[in-house]
């Protein structure tokens, strides 16, 4: 068990290095570099910079060094000092801009995941145990629709419905009066009132998907001999279903927690842009549009790191839950 955890964590390290390298490459991809942008900014504000000065700056920042050296400088600053570089667009340190938004993204993603589970698992179990029943068909239809509607479409539709029929603005995470206010009970309640929309938007698609997965898993498991053994012990149907096949049908589920996170982050970005949420999405989008690459790269790096951690966690969870994995 312990060796498995250590093994997984050790495996995560090369993945993390690879992830960070890709993020760095993305930062480097657009033509021009930090100095080009900086000089343009200075020139814009009226200062005069010669080509020579520009070249000297480049030398000073080490931008002429090989890519790997630059990467090392960048990543070591992050790991050692938590220094993600500077956003040119906002003229701020990246580290001062991202954590609030990342926190909200993480909160929304986690909440939608929990929400998804709470809804999808019982429905999946119900659909499988009452296969071909009326509600099974209803949920199947829902599952298909959920798969077909992209997040931003759902967000747009919700926004339009909210506006057209309920006369309310469903965008944002806070009402106007709380937007800049410090945290208080009122602000928290206000957050909850706004939070359900992004959560519904994010959870809709994944719930539909998970119902299908859970139903299929359950149907597989319900046909297995150990279920019959459990019935033959005299347990009630409810006990049998929830103690045995559900327990096992959940395992493939647990192993997908790690994969669910990237999907949720992706969904969050689009939904946040549409719903105008103060999460990573809009800022990342703006950073990419402005080619503010240190900011964008940091977001991509951190989101990827979160998912790598999520994958490791779900592998460990799976090992806890399934003794057969623990062996291997």
């Amino acid at each position: 068990m312990l060796s498995l955890i250590v093994n997984r964590i050790l495996w995560a390290i090369p993945t993390l290095i690879f992830v960070s390298f890709i993020s760095f490459v993305i930062i480097q991809l657009p033509p021009g570099d930090y100095v080009t942008a900086y000089v343009a900014q200075l020139r814009h504000s009226g200062e005069y910079i010669t080509e020579l000065q520009e070249a000297a700056m480049r030398q000073e920042f080490g931008l002429n060094d090989p890519l790997l050296v630059q990467y090392w400088r960048w990543i070591s600053a992050i790991v050692m000092h938590g220094d993600f570089g500077r956003s040119l667009e906002w003229n701020m340190d990246v580290k001062d801009m991202i954590w609030d938004r990342l926190g909200l993204t993480l909160a929304i993603s986690t909440l939608s995941m929990i929400f998804t589970w709470i809804i999808a698992i019982p429905i999946g179990v119900y659909s499988a145990t009452r296969q071909y029943s009326f509600f099974d068909y209803i949920f199947t239809v829902f599952g298909f629709i959920g798969k077909g509607i992209p997040e931003f479409m759902l967000a747009l539709i919700l926004m339009w419905l909210g506006y057209a029929y309920f006369n309310m603005d469903v965008g944002g995470l806070f009402s106007r009066q709380y937007e800049t206010a410090p945290w208080s009970w009122g602000k928290f309640v206000d957050l909850l009132e706004h939070l359900w929309v992004p959560i519904v938007v994010l959870a809709f698609g994944s719930t539909a998907g998970l119902i299908r997965v859970m139903r299929a898993n359950m149907l597989d498991e319900l046909g297995k001999p150990y279920v019959e053994t459990a019935y033959a012990q005299g347990f009630t149907e409810r006990t049998v279903v929830w103690r045995y096949p559900v327990r096992i049908a959940l395992n493939p589920f647990i192993s997908t927690v790690g994969w669910a996170l990237p999907a949720l982050f992706s969904g969050d970005i689009i939904a946040a842009v549409v719903l105008n949420l103060p999460t990573t999405g809009p800022l990342l989008l703006k950073a990419l549009q402005m080619q503010d690459m240190y900011l964008a790269g940091s977001f991509i790096l951190i989101l990827s790191v979160f998912t790598v951690i999520g994958t490791v966690l779900s592998d460990i969870l799976l090992a806890v839950s399934d003794p057969r994995i623990r062996m291997a």
Binding site: P30, P262, S266, Q291, T307, V308
Partner: peptide, 14 residues
């Protein structure tokens, strides 16, 4: 394990 949309966005923005 990489969130697709941010990665797509990063590549596309380049």
């Amino acid at each position: 394990s990489v969130p697709t949309i941010p990665l797509w966005m990063g590549l596309a923005a380049a």
